[in-house]
């Protein structure tokens, strides 16, 4: 990879309001960026009621996850609309876009179930060339997926509610599958480590910070 940073470190996230941006940064400070966390129409009322006293932190994590799932969902929707892939590649990547959309819906429902307010979808701006070719699309996808997996695993110990944890883990595993498949399509090693890496808040912020439009 020429530049190991996602989008070569160019800003891609643009928030509608300064408050949204600050909230995003606040979550970054709390839990780190990139949590591909947490799930879906899976939070029933009883589960929400059972949420721990620490659920404020979990809501922050959920909202963080939501922002990133928005980003991923948008990214795949854009990329797939360009018609860059065909045949088996298209068959393998299309469900990834579907999954990310489901994650957005699921995490949104989860935030509400826990009594929080879901963050709004960020305005996203992709650097020129992101969707110029099959290679640029998949390379960016690979960076997204690997970043998400790594950051996600860094947050595992910070989740309070066991229900949030179960749902989060069930998403994280799917993100790992995505990462492996995209690596495979790029001819990269789909199993770069025997245990998923996890990134600390500082490490993740170092990578993700440049994505946020100041």
């Amino acid at each position: 990879m020429d530049d190991p940073r996602i989008f070569q470190g160019k800003p891609v996230l643009q928030f509608r309001t300064e408050t949204s941006r600050r909230n995003f940064l606040k979550y970054a400070g709390l839990v780190g960026v990139g949590a591909s966390f947490v799930a879906g129409g899976v939070f029933t009322a009883p589960m929400a009621a059972a949420a721990s006293a620490d659920q404020g932190g979990d809501i922050d994590i959920l909202n963080y996850a939501l922002t990133l799932e928005y980003l991923e969902a948008d990214f795949y929707a854009m990329g797939l609309a360009k018609g860059l892939l065909a045949d088996r590649e298209l068959e393998l990547v299309t469900p990834i876009g579907d999954h990310e959309k489901q994650h957005v819906a699921g995490v949104t429902a989860a935030v509400k179930a826990f009594g929080g307010t879901p963050v709004e979808k960020p305005k996203i701006k992709y650097p020129d060339g992101t969707f110029a070719s099959r290679d640029s699309f998949l390379k960016t996808a690979s960076m997204f997926e690997e970043l998400g997996v790594t950051a996600y695993h860094g947050q595992v110990p910070l989740i309070s509610s066991v229900d949030v944890l179960a749902a989060a883990a069930s998403i994280a595993g799917v993100e790992s599958r995505h990462a492996a498949v995209v690596d495979y399509l790029l001819g990269k090693n789909p199993f770069p480590n025997p245990i998923e890496l996890h990134a600390s808040m500082d490490q993740v912020l170092a990578v993700a910070g440049p994505l946020i439009v100041k």
């Binding site: 994280a172 199993f191 480590n193 025997p194």
Partner: peptide, 14 residues
Amino acid sequence: AAGIFGVEARHAAI
């Protein structure tokens, strides 16, 4: 354990 779990998911997919 979560880190191992993720790698098993990669294996399954490939």
